[in-house]
Simulated scan of single mutants.
Amino acid sequence: MKHFQVSWITGSQVLVGALFLVGAQFALSSLDASGKYLMGVDIALPLLTLCLVRYGVHMLLALALVIPAKGWRAVRCKRPGAQLLRGLSMLAATMSFFTTLHYLPLAQATAINFLAPLLVLAVAPWILKERIYLSRWVACSIGLLGVLVVIRPGSGLSTEGTLYGLLTACIMAVQYITSRKVAADDPYTTLIWSGTVGTVLLLLGLPLYWDMAVQALARLSAWQWLVLLGTGFWGCLGHYLQIQAYWHAPASLLSPFIYLQIVSATTLGWLVWGDIPDMVTWVGILVVCASGMTIGLIEWRRK
């Protein structure tokens, strides 16, 4: 992945990077919406079966995309332990978030996830050995306040879904931290490992849920099969577009654009389920997004 000096960045590079990142957020929201649809009461696809197909298709697409261009050397990584830990945290985050979506609307669940990058900044002095900055603690506190507004009593959100949402944000923070640990590897190597770790683990456990998986898959219509296979496509595409985004511009400049995912999540939630957050929930969502975007700009200026 390229390492930029800020003075070398042109407006066109940032624009292209931002467009790739917005595309990635739409792809990942499509993954989330597909998972929520498949786990709904009408289909009730088991979580492990859903995740196996999601990661298996991701792995096959990543191999088909990368190996012809870079050869099998692209599979080799410099820090296999860190890649394994990242893959584990990514699988855990996927399972936790799909469970969250079983209970919560897409927009509200996505807003809770926005707490994850703020948690990373808050724990960076201890985990990543970075300097302590008051601005990071302030941003994390404000972001947490926004999340509390979203999940406030009387919001109508499921308590169980809310707890899973908060758990997902914590797991995703671990995933972000481990992503920094594998920065020495080629991003396309990480793309392959992202799908492979989850696939291998779920295949190892397949004997435990084989009968349930076969029965569930046999019930699916052609359209539902297309949506299921699409989970792997959207997941792989989202990560690929993220790689392209950070290849064109540094993370510090692109971080504010991450929060545009709330637009795609809200749009898909409205189109598929007719879910529209109420005004107070929108205030909480905007507080979370504003805290993340502001600290992103502060971090860029600091660098």
Rank of each mutant, 00 (worst) to 15 (best):
L88G: 14
S155D: 03
L226Q: 13
L61W: 03
R302V: 11
R180M: 07
L45I: 06
L52S: 07
F20L: 12
V41F: 15
T281V: 09
R131W: 11
S194Y: 15
S264A: 15
C77W: 10
L254V: 01
T159V: 12
D32M: 06
F4C: 03
K36V: 04
F257P: 04
L268Y: 09
C289I: 10
G230V: 01
T294F: 12
L47G: 06
G71T: 07
A218V: 04
E299N: 14
Q242R: 13
A213L: 09
W273M: 06
R302E: 10
I151E: 00
P250H: 01
L201Y: 08
V272M: 11
T196I: 14
H58C: 02
C77Q: 14
V41N: 11
A109L: 04
S30Y: 05
T162D: 02
T159F: 12
C170T: 08
G165M: 02
T266I: 12
W223E: 09
K70T: 08
F114N: 00
M95N: 01
W282H: 06
T110R: 01
A265L: 03
E299K: 09
G17Q: 01
W72Q: 10
L19H: 06
F97T: 02
W234I: 01
G198K: 02
L241H: 01
L148V: 07
T281L: 01
S30M: 08
V22E: 12
L201F: 11
W300L: 09
L115A: 08
T110K: 03
L253W: 15
P105D: 00
F233I: 04
R152K: 08
A183C: 15
V283T: 13
Q13D: 10
M95P: 01
I132E: 13
P80M: 05
R73A: 14
G71F: 05
R131T: 11
G56N: 00
V283S: 08
V149Y: 05
P256V: 06
H239D: 13
H248R: 13
M279G: 12
H3K: 15
I258Y: 14
